[in-house]
Design a protein around this nucleic acid. Structure first.
Length: 213
DNA sequence: CTACCGATTGACT
DNA sequence: GTCAATCGGTAGA
């Protein structure tokens, strides 16, 4: 297991990573490490579940109804955090593609790796499985709120994402299915997760047919 | 200003 | 499985 100090020295994913198509970014974020630096703690989690919200023909995307004060960050440069409130809780996205496109990837679940006691305190929950499984739960555990809206994820400041230097398996299978809590575009598999991972949030997952079959 | 909604969660049967 | 608390964002008067 890497120690947190060495993980904190790894290079953040570059902006080019985020400038690609939203579905590609959503899939490739699986297995990456989310890092959060606070005054008195360094938190690390492995991203195990994401959802894509597209720039085109996606009524569920917040940007679909045009620019508002809330969605301004989504229409900006890729690689910045878009943090929004839902049901009095915070959720964290990463902005993708091109400035002006209006699309992002929602971080739905991580596996806690470091700073677990801080997460327990911040979530006021003891059970490991409940700490970061779900978009608002992971934000509470990582102390992510509106202060990080518009934060640049390509520096080692406050919040960023890196490659895992020691991935647990060579190439984990990826599952895909309809997005959670979204009625539109149910036919598109825009929710992605690491197959059979215990930290993936609840509703049923569907294994995508293998490309070779 | 008020009214309504929601990319959720946690408590409960 | 069901259900409602909770509050920021948004639209509209």
């Amino acid at each position: 297991m890497n120690n947190p100090n060495s993980l904190a020295r790894l290079s953040p994913l570059p902006r080019a990573f985020y400038r690609r198509h939203t579905s590609t970014v959503a899939r490739e974020l699986l297995g990456k490490l989310l890092l959060r630096r606070l005054d008195n703690a360094l938190l690390v989690g492995r991203i195990v579940e994401t959802e894509a919200y597209l720039a085109e023909d996606d009524a569920a995307c917040h940007a679909a109804r045009g620019r508002t004060p809330r969605t301004e960050v989504m229409f900006g440069e890729a690689g910045f955090a878009y943090v929004y409130a839902i049901h009095a809780k915070w959720c964290c996205n990463v902005v993708t593609q091109r400035a002006g496109a209006g699309c992002a990837v929602l971080l739905r679940a991580v596996e806690p790796l470091h700073g677990i006691e801080f997460m327990r305190t911040h979530r006021n929950k003891q059970k490991l499985l409940d700490l970061t499984r779900g978009p608002a739960r992971l934000c509470a555990a990582f102390a992510i709120d509106r202060e990080l809206n518009g934060h640049d994820l390509t520096t080692r400041d406050a919040l960023w994402i890196t490659n895992d230097p020691k991935p647990p398996t060579a190439t984990p299978a990826i599952e895909a299915g309809p997005r959670v809590g979204v009625s539109s575009a149910q036919h598109h598999p825009l929710r992605f997760s690491i197959a059979d991972h215990r930290f993936v949030s609840l509703p049923r997952r569907v294994r995508l047919p293998d490309a070779s079959s």
